[in-house]
Design a binder for these strands. Structure first.
Length: 474
DNA sequence: CTAACGTTAAT
DNA sequence: TTAACGTTA
């Protein structure tokens, strides 16, 4: 018998760690899959994300049952649970897919030690990225801290093909496994019911999303991906976070779409999407080589940044009550769906850090609380980018103008009015010009909607001064 | 060989 | 402004 420990690889197909084990079933015995509910990890969970995870787990269990096997579930510390289960089942080895954050790797190292102590083998398998940290470096061999050159190397490197789901015969027969425990409910795990409506999880749903995306929207992606009302993004972020679909399978679908493209611009559009897959890997590399960035600035300033951190303004941002329509729409989408369109994520992040002058860690924590697709590497990379504390130096100061962003990317205020009902009867020109509209215009157009809590022009100057002094220039 | 400098482009 | 690269000294 062998064990495969599922973590954020909740699928049977295109799963390299699982396949590594099942390929050796003839010598080492069939593979029993297990998932461990770990309180230390759940402590960082949230109703939205854990609800998605439970859905994914239930689909995963079905996939195993279809193959005559079953998914074991245990609750506890993996350092205790896995050696005990391996001993109970007489397993000779345990596989799992490598993580990329410092905390996960510390825990995994401890699990490995405990397995060593009971003479159970463990083989290291990398699965979640096309190109592992260390495999794409500058010509001097250093990890990249700017994206562009990373992308060129990532793009030109050959990609592995997906691997098939294991044969049923390589999996442990359900009859030879301990009686299955039911999956816990959210309440069992101590979470409230999610307030958001969450998209269906599991490999089938993820494959449907890939197919639908590659069937058309991918060709508009380059041109339309920044328009939140358009819906031509892949919506795969949560699937990639939980590994309900393999990264090789996703890439293969996009490559097939590129082959079917009937113009150069369509092909380029597919490549624009592939570039987003590369961003994900770039930020995983950054986190792997700089595990401290989860809580520290990547970029070092001469002096600490003197964030303003006003609690009332932070709360207004969380509540979607800032009086800046595109910001409020995004923050309300986050509450309602556990999701936010990527362009809008950048806008609300810029607003929190540059208009409200609140530390990016507050924003990161709020995203972690609500996003179904929250991923340490991606979210940290995105927040630090917006906060000007991350990778990727820029010539001008990265301060978005929330009015310009709204006008440019949601000209008809379609996205805004979907999430901010107080503005439904208002003219788009009033919505975009809300910050400079007269009180009379506001009363007539949208009496219920919040008044702007800050003046963007003033706050922009304050933000510039805050960074100037952090740089030691004043 | 390395250090210095100019070029490029940045979601 | 800055990282990375390529070229030059």
């Amino acid at each position: 018998m062998q064990l495969h420990w599922h973590r954020d690889d909740l699928r049977v197909a295109d799963n390299l760690a699982l396949s590594t084990a099942t390929d050796r079933a003839a010598e080492r015995g069939p593979v029993a899959p297990v998932f461990v509910f770990d309180d230390d990890v759940l402590a960082h969970g949230s109703p939205n994300r854990v609800a998605f995870m439970l859905d994914a787990l239930s689909q995963l269990r079905e996939a195993y049952r279809d193959r005559g096997s079953d998914l074991l579930v245990r609750h506890g510390d993996p350092r205790e649970v896995l050696p005990a289960l391996a001993t109970e089942l007489g397993a000779v080895s345990v596989t799992w897919a490598e993580g990329y954050s410092g905390l996960a790797n510390e825990r995994d190292a401890a699990v490995r030690q405990r397995l060593d102590a009971v003479d159970v083998a463990r083989e290291s398998v990398t699965d979640a990225l096309h190109h592992e940290p260390g495999s794409i470096t500058t010509n001097d061999g250093d990890p990249y801290s700017v994206y562009t050159y990373f992308w060129k190397k990532w793009r030109d490197r050959p990609k592995a093909d997906p691997v098939d789901a294991p044969e049923a015969g390589a999996l442990a027969d359900a009859a030879d496994l301990p009686d299955p425990e039911p999956l816990p409910t959210l309440a069992d795990l101590g979470f409230a019911e999610p307030t958001a409506t969450i998209q269906p999880a599991g490999t089938e749903a993820a494959r449907d999303r890939v197919t639908a995306f590659c069937d058309g929207p991918v060709y508009d992606y380059a041109e339309r991906r920044d328009y939140p009302a358009d819906g031509c993004t892949s919506r795969l972020s949560a699937d990639l976070k939980w590994g309900t679909i393999g990264i090789r399978e996703v890439y293969e679908e996009t490559a097939a779409a590129a082959d079917l493209a009937d113009s150069e611009s369509d092909r380029e559009s597919v490549q624009e999407f592939q570039s987003q897959l590369a961003w994900r890997e770039f930020y995983h590399h950054v986190l792997f080589f700089n595990p401290e960035v989860v809580s520290a600035n990547y970029k070092e300033y001469e002096h600490p940044i003197e964030w303003r951190n006003d609690p009332a303004e932070l709360q207004a941002w969380k509540d979607g009550e800032t009086g800046y329509p595109i910001v409020d729409a995004g923050m309300r989408q986050l509450r309602e769906e556990g999701y936010m369109h990527n362009r809008v994520r950048m806008i609300v992040a810029s607003f929190l850090t540059k208009d409200l002058l609140v530390d990016w860690r507050e924003g990161y924590a709020h995203f972690r609380e609500h996003l179904v697709d929250h991923d340490t590497a991606n979210d940290n990379g995105g927040w630090q980018w917006a906060a000007s504390t991350g990778t990727d130096a820029q010539p001008y100061f990265r301060i978005f103008n929330p009015m310009t962003q709204g006008e440019r990317y949601d000209p008809d205020a379609e996205y805004i009015t979907e999430y901010v009902p107080e503005l439904r009867d208002a003219d788009p020109s009033l919505i975009h010009g809300w910050h400079e509209a007269s009180e009379l215009m506001r009363e007539q157009g949208a009496p219920e909607y919040a008044r702007p809590i800050v003046d963007h022009g003033e706050r922009r100057e304050q933000a510039l001064a805050m960074f100037k002094s952090a740089r030691g220039e004043e």
